[in-house]
């Protein structure tokens, strides 16, 4: 069983490594990820949100809805732990 799992993992890893051939080189400034969407965040952040930390402005404004979801994930986790572990004693 373990051996089978190992083979499975090896195959998955092999496929993933194989696909890196077509990836843009590491740290390439002209890779699609660096030129398509993200430049606007860096260039317009001060103008549009007055926030120098680009990560904060993207996190809380451009993609603020993601962050709402993310906070909800935390909230969900908290509620889950309470639901699972906490026994509210009957008063």
């Amino acid at each position: 069983m373990r051996f089978l799992n190992f083979i499975l993992v090896a195959i998955a890893g092999g496929i993933l490594i194989y696909s890196t051939v077509d990836m843009p080189p590491w740290a390439d400034p002209s890779s699609p990820a660096s030129v398509h969407v993200s430049p606007r965040y860096i260039e317009k952040t001060l103008e549009e949100t007055a926030t120098p930390n680009v990560v904060t402005s993207v996190l809380a404004d451009y993609r603020g809805y993601d962050t709402l979801g993310e906070t909800t994930v935390i909230f969900t986790a908290g509620m889950c732990c309470i639901l699972l572990l906490r026994r509210v004693s009957k008063r």
């Binding site: 993609r63 809805y65 993310e70 909800t72 994930v73 969900t76 986790a77 889950c80 639901l83 699972l84």
Partner: peptide, 20 residues
């Protein structure tokens, strides 16, 4: 990516709900 975030909300909730 937004889909992933909501996927996780739903998944976490589902794990807990199943566990009770």
């Amino acid at each position: 990516f937004n889909l992933y975030v909501f996927l996780e909300i739903a998944s976490l909730a589902a794990y807990a709900l199943i566990a009770i």
